[in-house]
Design a protein around this nucleic acid. Structure first.
Lengths: 128, 128
DNA sequence: CAACTGTTATATAATTTATATAACAGTGAG
DNA sequence: CTCACTGTTATATAAATTATATAACAGTTG
């Protein structure tokens, strides 16, 4: 129902959509049991194709966030169901590693980077 | 001369190559004035195409890390020349934001994430 | 039954990634 | 100057990814 987006970037549409939805989950704007807009509905309101939305939904479902069934839609699972596994943590660590290299190569101090992370993490609390 | 790689992943080759080189810069394995392996040389040793290496080198040059000239090769610039601009910091922040959302949605605590970042940052020091 | 769900199938098009050759142009050691 | 090295440019091809468009199929619910 929520899921407000501003697209237009270098990233693929389905990727941007995924990131926006994960952000909504992180903010608590999408909670257990909630039903997402239907693929046709959301595609229409974003003026993009049904399959682009379907691709984003399906990948997020495979990543453990939703259950999907014909006739019903995409429903947010309980939070425990998609709590980070060791594999998730490893992947996140690898992503952090790339960012650290980028930052360190450009002479950004560790403390500065930690501050940025704290700031971004705290921003998510805002729930709009 | 250095630049050791293990490819094979989901990311494009030129992207992996870029990340490996930025990591080498962050570790101090590539310093001001150093000349990178020629595009043909590196392509050959990695068993990939010359243009794939060229693409990676050119993008990194555009991002401020190298100077490139015919006949000479790719030479690492002084560190100050590619120190983070406000724009760089903003981009890094956006990347951190995506990771924060991914982590928070999966119930990873802020402190845990900060620990992972610290760990990855410190790992870069090791210089092999 | 009707109107909604997601799913599957097919087709098309543009872009991105990666390769392959070849030629061009600047650099520097012998 | 020549030769062997640099990066660059041009052209072509192929595969994979992204995104769209239609249509039909199948489960759900009022």
């Amino acid at each position: 129902m929520i899921v407000k987006l501003m697209l237009e970037s270098d990233k693929p549409l389905y990727q941007q959509l995924k990131e926006n939805i994960v952000m909504a989950l992180a903010k608590g704007e999408l909670k257990e049991g909630e039903v997402l807009p239907s693929v046709r509905q959301l595609a229409s309101s974003l003026a993009i194709n049904m399959h682009t939305v379907s691709k984003a939904y399906n990948q997020l479902a495979n990543e453990g966030f939703f259950t999907m069934h014909k006739g019903k839609g995409a429903i947010v699972k309980p939070k425990k169901d998609y709590a980070a596994t060791d594999e998730d943590i490893q992947k996140i660590s690898e992503n952090l590693s790339v960012i650290c290299a980028e930052a360190k190569s450009r002479s950004i101090e560790k403390e500065k980077l930690l501050e940025l992370l704290k700031q971004k993490f705290d921003e998510i609390e805002k729930k709009e």
